[in-house]
């Protein structure tokens, strides 16, 4: 099993990748926003340089894993004047509660940003109970 250190870009935080990865090397932890709306949680992750086909989202035992494979961008013999960002895959896991309806998770990807929609399950949604008047 290959363990991979996951770095957060420009933050220097690392975490050990929990799952086994088939590709070694450096992986980055994408920056995310998680928002809540009435019906769902929305996870927004910045993953610059990842192509649509190279995104892998997995949900297993309450753990949501997002992975993005980044193709190496540089050829040999390039003279760098500035080299500010590292190139590597993106990897991050999230533990979700049972209140998420995992069968309805869906995602979209645009401009290097991955958005994952995590609908709340029916039983956790607030419900109004109608009161019938009985005479």
């Amino acid at each position: 099993m290959s363990t991979v250190n996951v770095h957060q870009k420009a933050h220097g935080q690392t975490e050990e990748a929990r799952a086994e990865r088939t590709r070694g090397g450096q992986a980055y932890r994408p920056h995310v926003d998680i928002l809540e709306s009435k019906d769902e949680l929305i996870l927004v992750a910045d993953m610059p340089g990842v192509k649509h086909d190279n995104i892998d989202i997995n949900f297993e035992e309450h753990v949501l894993t997002i992975q993005g494979r980044v193709e190496p961008r540089y050829g040999e013999g390039v003279n760098f004047l500035l080299y500010e960002y590292g190139v590597g895959d993106f990897y991050r896991t999230f533990r979700l509660s049972e209140e998420i309806d995992s069968t309805k998770i869906h995602a979209e990807h645009a401009n290097g940003v991955l958005t994952v929609y995590l609908p709340k399950s029916e039983k956790t949604k607030p419900r109004k109970i109608a009161v019938t008047a009985s005479a």
Binding site: K9, A10, D46, V78, L82, E84, N111, V113
Partner: peptide, 22 residues
Amino acid sequence: PAVDVEETDKQIRVRAEIPGVK
């Protein structure tokens, strides 16, 4: 944004990570 700048004989290429912009 973070940038990379590469130089070759005839050109300069600048790359920047700017996710989420139109």
